[in-house]
Design a protein around this nucleic acid. Sequence first.
DNA 1: AAAGCACCCTGTACGC
DNA 2: TGCGTACAGGGTGCTT
Length: 274
Amino acid sequence: MPELPEVETVARGLRGSLLGRTITGATVGWSRTIGRPAMDEFMARVAGRRVILVTRRGKYVLIGLDRGHLVIHLKMSGRLQVTPAGEPPDPYVRVLFDLDDGRQLRFQDTRKFGRVYLVDDPTEVTAGLGPEPLAEDFDLHCFRQLLDRRRGRLKPLLLNQKFLAGLGNIYADEALFAAGLHPLRTVDSLTPDEQMRLYEAIRTILGQAVDSRGTTLDDKGYTDVAGQAGAYQDQIAVYGRAGEPCLRCHSPIERIVIGGRSAHFCPCCQGKRS
DNA sequence: AAAGCACCCTGTACGC
DNA sequence: TGCGTACAGGGTGCTT
């Protein structure tokens, strides 16, 4: 599932192959994939636009055009691939962009949860997002201020994109493990030292995952723009490891459901109480 | 503000 | 072997 590190890897890959290219046309295979404007207007307005910028905000890929911006969320199963001309069609391609060099940018998405927007200003889509956890100016002081305005349990908070942009289920669980914090711990129960550990854990885990070009859990999982898998799955400590021994203390990893979402943790290394 | 849940989808895992 | 069903997952929107 693409989270910040995967989306960052995709954005970097796209930057190399899309910058300066002109989109000669677009074909939509599943109309609901287009968030806005309506499908026909989308196809008409994107044709002839040149790519001048590729960035990321939270889990969104932002493709700046000479007029307007494509804003793309991969959700669970979305993939962006740049393919050579003549590549055989993929059954899960939802949006196809033809490029002026003969290649294609393909948005593939088996689950159809992903969305592609064409807007004048990316913040029309991303306005509600919290800060970027890897931004240089996102320091411990900022993080403490964010925490002070929140209540409730840590796991749902880390998944809340309005709190912090970019964490998903995998890296939220990994960050809580790295910080030694139980996912059901509440924000207001954190000591200053625990706040710092959580801050450091989020930054360290995300940074390492970006360096590893993301997590690919299985052959159907995430890949980068060239179709290559990430490598962070080799460093996963708790996510998807229920019943397996903790890498630190060998206790069996537990899996519980919090707010309708799975949470994986070591009951020994991540005590419920501080 | 937080919590719980249905919804959007489909491949896959599982029970019989 | 083959069928039906539950489930996973991110985000939104609704209700409590």
